[in-house]
Amino acid sequence: MLIHCPFCGARPSEEFAVLGDAGPKRPEAPGDDTGSDPEAWYDYVYLRDNPRGVHREFWQHVGGCRAWLVVERDTATHEVRSVELARKATAGREAS
């Protein structure tokens, strides 16, 4: 698989580490114990979108620039559709 790192260009997938589903958004948790919703945390930590088809995933260019990326990839064909910096892709997302 080739992944087009925004900084480094097309690089082989073995230079990258994959974390998985980029969908879940970390719940907003207040500083005390009262406000955190266990279901939201269960969902964030343990449940995963697992589609056969296009999937948005976190990958890190560990063997290169160390950037975390959001890679849109087809899990049925391994075709990489798009790559963007996680910094940009996750900015301004609403909590799920």
Binding site: F58, W68, L85, A86, T90, A91
Partner: peptide, 8 residues
């Protein structure tokens, strides 16, 4: 990951 994805 924390810096780039959670708290940019």
């Amino acid at each position: 990951f924390c810096l780039q994805s959670l708290w940019p």
